[in-house]
Amino acid sequence: MRMRLGKVPVLAAIAAFVVVFGTIAAASNNWYEFSDFFCLYHGARSLVLGHDPYDASWWLQATGGLRPTPSGGLARTSCYGGPGYPLWTFLAMLPIGALPLEPAAVVWESLSIGAALAGAWWAWRAVQGPARFALLYLALLLASQPFWLLVIYGQITGVMLAIAGLLALLLTRARERAAGVALAALALKPQCVFLTLPAFALR
């Protein structure tokens, strides 16, 4: 119990960092109106409003036009031609889609950053990474291009890293049923499942 209570301040500090970082990131990048998050958001938002996200005319109305970019310019969204995600991904995003864009972007980016940190930690535990290299590992994560693409574009990669890291940890502990659930969760981005399946064949 003492160890668990001792971790509370650390977890609280991490949570505060994640929320502050997520808020700054979302606000600095125009609430991700031009990027991957905008597509995820409007897929879920369409369902909240009772529309079909795969209705081309509705999708164009929701996501078409030029959107502001962090550099001060204007650009089309990454999905103006169509949603690009399966229906179950939008269903999973319903709580985000129920919010207005600005708070939704803050919640999403905070969740994504926290998920990326958690996923990296679970992956580190899965390979039994030595404690003396943990800070170096964290520094490499925070300095990596994928992490900053997540920050700038609001991508789904943080959530996918969390699922993949948890999957790896569960497999190392022979918790195969829970690992199966994690594998199914990778279907939020279906190509990740196909990239992961060969690892099962090699076990």
Results as ranks from 00 to 15, higher is better:
Glu176Arg: 15
Ala182Lys: 02
Ala13Arg: 12
Gly22Val: 02
Val8Glu: 15
Ala26Phe: 04
Leu47Val: 03
Ala62Leu: 01
Ala182Glu: 05
Leu94His: 13
Ile163Leu: 13
Phe38Lys: 00
Ala184Val: 15
Leu49Pro: 09
Tyr80His: 13
Phe38Met: 09
Pro9Ile: 13
Asp52Asn: 12
Ser35Leu: 00
Pro86Asn: 10
Ala134Glu: 03
Ala115Gln: 00
Ile96Asp: 00
Asn30Ile: 02
Leu167Ile: 14
Val20Asn: 02
Ile113Glu: 08
Gly97Trp: 10
Pro68Ser: 07
Val10Arg: 07
Asn29Asp: 01
Leu149Arg: 09
Ala13Ser: 12
Gly158Trp: 02
Thr23Cys: 15
Arg45Phe: 00
Met1Pro: 07
Tyr153Phe: 12
Tyr54Asn: 08
Arg67Lys: 15
Ala178Phe: 05
Phe194Arg: 11
Leu117Ser: 11
Thr172Tyr: 02
Trp124Glu: 01
Ala27Ile: 04
Leu101Thr: 14
Phe34Arg: 09
Phe34Thr: 10
Ala16Leu: 14
Tyr32Gly: 01
Pro103Trp: 10
Ile96Glu: 00
Phe34Lys: 03
Val18Cys: 08
Leu149Tyr: 06
Leu91Phe: 11
Pro95Val: 04
Met3Gly: 15
Trp108Cys: 01
Leu47Gln: 08
Leu99Gln: 06
Gln145Phe: 06
Met3Gln: 07
Phe194Cys: 12
Leu136Ala: 12
Leu49Ala: 10
Gly50Ser: 02
Met3Asn: 13
Phe34Ile: 05
Leu101Lys: 14
Gly6Gln: 08
Phe90Ile: 03
Val19Ala: 10
Ser71Met: 13
